[in-house]
């Protein structure tokens, strides 16, 4: 069944800013959907509309079978985890967890059970009587999640919950969020601008840009079959190389150098190529490539350089000898993705 249906939702702010321009997404039961996009793409606005913190200008939001457009956040059966945790600073952890339940007139015995359950699950039982100011960032994040869990909501809403943590803790918490969500089998929307978080956490990714959906798909689909140049360059690190090229039907030409390439399209195109799909080749077949900078990342090495006037990056195993000067690079025609030069839409070959 579907937990959440977002139907052609639009948001126009009173000052005329067009934040969300007609978005439709479904979130299935128990699914973790990640909204990803650059800042200002409308992902947070969309989440806040689901939460009820922003009004919906147009369209419908249906949660667990009922339209919630006009409902107060408290009546929507959602729970939200904020970027800055938004814990009540003057309340103990226990009171923070219990506050929402208390406002709902939940019986005290029930509150106690739920709080200790959540505390157990998140390993914060020993901090229950501390104030948030006495906790570390990771612990506060757990409390914020605990506050969401005790509500037994229909859907969890995460608004960049890991942005305030340091890199190591972020990786650890990311894994924990995923495990927790799997265990609770509750649907969740997770908003982030970090494509690594999106790739690792998501059952499905929704890539947003300028208030519109660019693509919806599993991480693997998004990675290997990006629908637009935006998705192609946004997902993946290091980002996909984007080159200006020309197809003639039988060949692909980059800055005067060409390889045989059979495609129905002919004319100028944007050519996408993942850095890890490019190989350094010996011999004559291949594109001439001038190395400019090397970046060693431990396991892999990034080689920056250019083909003619166009910047290009390739990733290679760090064990291989470091290239320098003018070399030849090659790639499989299957790894080349073509996009329309004007619209950025994928040209299926």
């Amino acid at each position: 069944m579907t937990t959440l249906k977002i139907k052609n939702v639009k948001k126009v702010y009173p000052n005329g800013a067009d934040a969300v321009k007609g978005v439709s997404v479904d979130v299935e039961d128990g699914e973790l959907v990640v909204f990803v996009g650059p800042s200002g793409c409308g992902k947070s606005t969309l989440l806040r509309m689901v939460a009820g913190l922003e009004s919906v200008t147009e369209g419908e939001i249906e949660l667990a079978g009922r339209i919630v457009n006009e409902l107060e956040p408290a009546d929507r059966n959602i729970a939200m985890v904020f970027q800055n945790y938004a814990l009540y600073p003057h309340m103990s952890v226990r009171k923070n967890l219990a506050y929402g339940l208390k406002n709902r007139k939940t019986p005290q015995a029930e509150i106690d059970t739920r709080v200790s359950e959540a505390a157990e699950l998140l390993q914060i039982a020993e901090f229950l009587d501390r104030k948030p100011s006495q906790l570390s960032g990771g612990q506060r994040q757990r409390v914020a999640m605990g506050r969401a869990i005790v509500r037994h909501p229909a859907i969890f809403l995460f608004d960049e919950p890991l942005s305030n943590l340091d890199a190591k803790l972020r990786n650890q918490m990311r894994l924990e969020i995923k495990k927790l969500q799997r265990r609770l089998k509750t649907a969740a929307i997770y908003v982030t601008h970090d494509q690594v978080e999106a790739m690792t956490l998501a059952d499905r990714i929704v890539v947003l840009n300028a208030g519109q959906i660019e693509q919806i798909g599993t991480p693997a689909e998004i990675y290997s079959n990006p629908a637009t140049t935006f998705v192609a360059s946004f997902i993946g690190a290091p980002p996909m190389n984007m080159l200006e090229a020309t197809t003639t039907g039988e060949s692909l030409e980059i800055d005067g150098q060409s390889i045989p390439y059979s495609v129905k399209h002919s004319g100028r195109v944007q050519m996408g190529l993942r850095p890890e799909r490019i190989k350094i080749v010996n011999g004559e077949a291949g594109f001439g490539f001038d190395v400019t900078v090397l970046e060693d990342l431990g396991a892999t090495r990034l080689v920056h350089g250019h083909i003619g006037g166009q910047e290009i990056t390739l990733a290679q195993d760090a064990d291989l000898p470091a290239p320098s000067g003018h070399i030849k690079i090659g790639f499989q025609p299957d790894d080349v993705l073509l996009f329309d030069e004007a619209t950025g839409q994928r040209i299926l070959t």
């Binding site: 939460a51 913190l53 408290a74 939200m80 009540y88 003057h90 506050y99 929402g100 406002n103 506050r147």
Partner: peptide, 24 residues
């Protein structure tokens, strides 16, 4: 976000004032 968290937690305007703002 504190106001928003309180709204999600079902605090009305009065409760937010008494429970959150006054202690703060």
């Amino acid at each position: 976000e504190l106001l928003e968290a309180a709204r999600i937690d079902g605090a009305n305007a009065w409760r937010f004032l008494i429970d959150i703002l006054v202690p703060l």
